[in-house]
Amino acid sequence: MKLIVTDREGKVHELEALEGWRAMEVIRDYGLPIKAECGGACSCATCHVYVAEEWLGKLFPPREEEIEMLDQAFHVHDNSRLSCQILMSDALDGLHVTLAPESA
């Protein structure tokens, strides 16, 4: 199962994802720069990613908690998600996300 990640420099990484892992955990496991400070508790907004247009419809819609937490992210767009709230599954094999700008 693949997770495709475009980093902030525009470089594309093809990561091996595991069923049930959060996209954030996969990204962190590969050492790509993602803060994910709260460790997946949906309470820091430092794992913000942009989901490629073609994948948006395949994701579970964000819960209220995630929508509210995105208020603490920057440059939030319609395709913004917190990657700790995306659970990898067969249906998301090949999911493509882009790391959002991070607080310096």
Binding site: E37, C38, G39, A41, S43, C44
Partner: peptide, 10 residues
């Protein structure tokens, strides 16, 4: 610390 600030209910 983080327990109280980031995930008090986690």
């Amino acid at each position: 610390g983080q327990c109280a600030e980031l995930y008090p209910e986690k």
